[in-house]
Amino acid sequence: MRTRLAPYLFVAPAMLLLVTFGVFPIFVALAVSLTNMNISAFANISNVDFVGLDNYVKLFDDADFWQALGNTGLFAVLGVPSIVLLSLAVALLLNHSDHWIFRALRSFYFIPAITAIVAISLIWGYLYNTQFGFLNYVLSFAGIDQVQWLSDPLLAKFSVALVAVWRGTGLNIIIFLAALQGVPREYLEAASLDGASEWRKTFSIVLPLLRFAIFFVTVTTIISWGQFFDEPFVLTDGGPLGATTSVSIFLYKEGFRLNQFGYASAGSIVLFAIIAVITLVQLRARKADDEY
């Protein structure tokens, strides 16, 4: 009996934390989304009324929500392929040598992942500054007029996405490097004896063996971009004209600035459902690939 129970006892603390801070809040948000809860409800619970699906009907009729959803989709389209491909390319280059320079570069690329997002965004804000920013200063030597990096609605999307790509690449480089360490050297040596080039070995041996790592990085990156918040919040606060307002920023403003907890909870449930469906589709595709 002790042998059978031991694994569950070791897993129990982690599962308890997961249920408490991961699963339970989802059901709380679902319940709140069916009410008109606001800040006054904390003082008097009788102020909370059941409104059914009214919040969801209002949400799907809200042009600001659809704009935020479209922005989030665009950010994901820009960011996910960029991070996955850039991280994989850098990891492949760093894995070719164990020289101390390459070991130092591995640490260097990981620094953005452990740096405070506020500090990162403030530095990039100065770089993007229209009047005295470094980027415009460099462009001035080429005779280019001042670029409105964060003031132009279209350009602001790409500017904010660039910061997130730069910050998100470091952690994924480490993940790919760890996966590359698991590639059997015998396969590469055998391919070298057969006269295979580095490109041939990379595409025929290395990349197929990295399928799970690529899948893992892709899934986690999509989830993180679906919850995109930090960079646009600090750099533009969702502006200009809502051009960089993600769904997460929209929910934050509705819940904590406009005091509409029920309405914001409905939006969070919709966002959770979208991310869950995308993740399940990817898991299904991964399972079909393994069966094939």
Rank of each mutant, 00 (worst) to 15 (best):
D145S: 15
G125R: 06
L135S: 13
V138R: 04
L177V: 02
L135Q: 12
A156V: 00
F134Q: 11
D145C: 06
Q146P: 12
I223P: 05
Y137A: 12
W166T: 04
I223L: 14
W100R: 14
E186G: 03
F132T: 15
S97W: 00
F132E: 13
T221Y: 02
F110K: 03
P184K: 09
R106G: 01
T218Y: 09
E186S: 13
H99W: 10
R211Q: 07
G125Q: 13
A119R: 12
S140K: 15
F158K: 10
F203D: 07
Q146M: 15
S140Q: 14
F203S: 14
A191G: 06
E189Y: 08
A196T: 09
I175P: 02
A116M: 13
G143F: 11
S159D: 09
R200V: 15
A178E: 00
A190H: 03
N136M: 14
R211C: 04
L210E: 03
N136E: 15
I173A: 07
V163H: 03
I123T: 14
I214V: 13
F110N: 03
L122I: 11
V206I: 12
W225Q: 03
G125V: 03
V165E: 02
L162Y: 11
L122W: 09
G168M: 04
L139C: 13
V183M: 05
S197C: 11
I214R: 05
R211G: 13
F176G: 03
F176T: 05
D98T: 07
S204Y: 13
I222L: 15
V138P: 05
Q131N: 14
G168F: 00
I223K: 10
L171D: 01
T202N: 07
R103K: 13
K157R: 15
A113D: 01
L139Y: 11
E186P: 01
D145Q: 15
P153V: 07
W225M: 08
F216T: 10
F158R: 11
